[in-house]
Design a binder for these strands. Structure first.
Lengths: 225, 225
DNA sequence: GTTGCGGCTATTGTATACAAAAGCGCACGC
DNA sequence: GCGTGCGCTTTTGTATACAATAGCCGCAAC
């Protein structure tokens, strides 16, 4: 694994965006463990901006439940137990299932072609003798983003953005072996078929199953508890 | 109807909270029609605070899609067409259905008693010769809040808070006649039965139906289009 | 030894000043 | 007359200064 702080954040973004990305990176990388206080001034020093954009970033992280507020108004890194993770997957399954159903109704030919291309790339990443995990994850994220875009619901996009998924996807997929990756790509293929047939309920069912399988892959891969 | 700016916001709240409540009130009351620009300084003058808490409030309103951002970064009041409203109800039906299912599993005896009391108050408000709409709405809101609390999911609570509901509920219920109110109370009664039986799927189904009926009541009451 | 009070400090909330950028209008040229 | 480019104005983004409040530590009294 290359790089230092997770995803490459283009330095051209606003200070608030950089603060958001960087602070979230600290949480996801485990540098800020659950319960760690998130103090505005300290974070401002780390990111190299003033408190104002940091406050902005913290409000977003709080809304997405990366951070929780103590009675006194201080923010600390949230602690997700296994039940929270199950709940996150359950909500994702519902909402992405709904997104898939909407997408089935609205899918254009060019969007469908994009999905096919994307999934071909995912299959290629999965098929290599030594699976390209990073490529798989990037493709997977893009696939789900394309479906979300095709669903054409700003509200769904907003809600799913807050449904922190990447950390979990990453922690799960690193334990995938090649057959798991191939199965995931196969499910994407089913989804594409459902889209091509414009069958909303088929698409919803496939997406729901896809995500719920990911939940159990995660649970199986989890150390214990 | 008494009061001036909608719900009584206790003046003791923080400046940011007051700004949020007041600006949202402007939008819901129709003083700020769709497309109206939301300029920070102007709003700061109206609310009587500085731009800082106003910015805070606007970020929340943006996250909840009361406002949308123009390409240049300016905020304007969002315009919800009928499809948006249908989508809001569909999402509420899913999420509140899920909340009801969770609540059925977790419901305590005292929570159940509270729900019964609450629904008794709703029935009383609905049964009066001249129905007490305000009382019905307050009771209805409390009922749904109790269910949400019983579901014990911070994530659900956060997501549903953003699913702007009150304006719609209000616009619908003012057109309810007494039989509609009574039917709503009856559905709450069914929900209580499902909770008492700890039947998750029953609770989910009743709640889903309850909200989807509200959607159609809203559509029937809508002027046209 | 424990518990309650008091003052101090750390941290967030709010206001204001300044910088950057986007929109708008006007004028000029074709 | 219409299009285009430049500069002014409005508006948001960021930094910093100040106010208020919550938490903490120590001391003392029971």
């Amino acid at each position: 694994m290359p790089g230092k702080s997770a995803s490459a954040s283009s330095a051209a973004a606003s200070a608030a965006d950089r603060a958001y990305t960087e602070i979230r990176g600290l949480i996801l990388a485990g540098d800020a463990t659950p319960g760690t206080p998130l103090r505005e001034e300290a974070l401002a020093d780390i990111v190299g901006v003033s408190r104002t954009p940091v406050r902005d970033a913290l409000r977003r992280l709080e809304a997405e439940l990366y951070a929780v507020r103590t009675p006194g108004g201080r923010l600390v890194v949230a602690d997700w137990n296994i039940d929270d993770v199950v709940e996150i997957f359950a909500l994702r399954a519902m909402l992405e299932g709904h997104a898939a159903a909407r997408a089935a109704r609205r899918m254009t030919a060019s969007q469908l072609a994009e999905l096919r291309d994307c999934n071909a790339a995912i299959e290629a990443a999965a098929a290599r003798p030594e699976p390209d995990i990073a490529g798989f994850l990037a493709g997977n994220r893009r696939f789900h983003d394309l479906v979300l875009a095709a669903s054409a619901s700003a509200r769904l996009s907003t809600m799913l953005a807050g449904l922190v998924e990447q950390p979990i996807v990453r922690r799960t997929a690193t334990r995938y072996d090649r057959s798991d990756l191939a199965r995931s790509a196969h499910e994407h293929g089913q989804l594409i078929q459902a889209f091509a047939a414009r069958d909303e309920e088929w698409a919803r069912a496939v997406m729901t199953a896809h995500i719920r399988r990911a939940l159990h892959a995660f649970q199986d891969a989890s150390p214990s508890k």
